[in-house]
């Protein structure tokens, strides 16, 4: 028996009531300080002048921070860029991992090699990939433009060219991320019951029909999750443009998060930066809620 100096009633109270909250406490403290309070505090800061010089006496200024945002052309520019980023990212990179996963899953030769080979970029740190691709994209002299020149075309000037800058970043992101997502889909494919394929084959379904009516419906829940995750992830993009283009050329790759960063750490205007963060917050939470409602409806109908 354990010996305790505490009176029995306190001990009983501890075992019955107190031990649960005690186990919960570390997480609750972390969440309170670094998640719940910052969210609530955001709203307060966004209505105050809160800059580096006068941290102590933030003054209430009503909607002023939002007015500053709405009169800032780069606010609109960065949202436009990010939406373009999301759309291009979905067009180029959304279906690719699904196709890769289905194809790799069928392979009877070198399957392990193919899986690992396609997964390779996902093993590299993003910063490493970004710097390396910045060199590959070097205008005229870089690897890619050299090949373009060898083929007899004008150099594209990738990241320096306003027309191709975002596209170049999306190509790099797809190269980096497709392998990771492919592994998730591959795991999902292992859960497809073989009897379904067996039945489809007996019914005379050809390859495309089997993919269309067996594989895709089975992967659909996963595909829906990856869809919203890719959108949310792309809305917050920062590291790639920050390292590779610094938002250029002519702010063509400036993202929402980069603009927030500029407001906070270049102009030290935390009020406007927080207000802009809240616009991101509202957009992302609304997207999640819309997605949940759609997912529920789709889940009910299938």
């Amino acid at each position: 028996m354990r010996v305790s100096l505490l009176p029995k009633r306190i001990q009983e109270f501890y075992h019955a009531r107190l031990i649960g909250p005690i186990f919960l406490l570390p997480a609750v403290l972390c969440f309170a300080f670094f998640s719940w309070r910052p969210v609530l505090w955001s709203f307060w800061i966004s209505f105050h002048r809160y800059d580096f010089a006068m941290k102590e006496k933030a003054t209430f200024i009503g909607w002023e921070n939002y007015r500053v945002l709405l009169s800032d052309q780069y606010f609109y520019q960065s949202w436009f860029n990010v939406i373009l980023y999301v759309v291009l990212g979905l067009l180029i990179g959304y279906l690719l991992p699904v196709v890769l996963a289905i194809a790799v899953n069928e392979m009877r030769h070198l399957k392990g090699y193919l899986r690992l080979g396609l997964f390779l970029p996902a093993m590299l740190p993003l910063v490493v990939v970004a710097i390396m691709w910045k060199y590959l994209y070097t205008p005229s002299e870089g690897f890619f433009d050299s090949i373009v020149k060898l083929l007899g075309f004008e150099p594209v000037r990738w990241l320096q060219n306003g027309k191709t800058a975002i596209l170049s970043l999306v190509i790099m992101s797809t190269w980096k991320n497709a392998g990771w997502t492919m592994i998730i889909y591959l795991a999902g494919l292992q859960g497809v019951p073989p009897q379904l394929y067996e039945a489809a084959e007996i019914d005379g379904a050809n390859l495309w029909q089997r993919i269309r009516h067996v594989t895709i419906p089975q992967l659909l829940p996963l595909m829906m999750i990856m869809f919203i995750l890719q959108i949310i992830g792309t809305f917050q993009i920062f590291t790639e443009p920050f390292i590779m283009t610094e938002g250029g050329p002519a702010n063509k790759t400036l993202t929402v998060l980069m603009r927030i960063y500029q407001y906070a750490f270049r102009y030290f205007d935390y009020g406007v930066a927080t207000a802009m963060g809240l616009t991101l917050f509202v957009v992302l939470v609304s997207l999640s809620i819309i997605w949940f409602m759609v997912a529920k409806r789709v889940g009910r109908s299938t």
């Binding site: 910052p38 969210v39 935390y270 963060g277 991101l280 992302l284």
Partner: peptide
């Protein structure tokens, strides 16, 4: 609920914290 709040969206209040 905190899963819906990406940390990037509260970057500045977190920094001030």
């Amino acid at each position: 609920a905190s899963l819906m709040v990406p940390f990037q969206a509260i970057l500045i209040p977190l920094y001030l914290t």
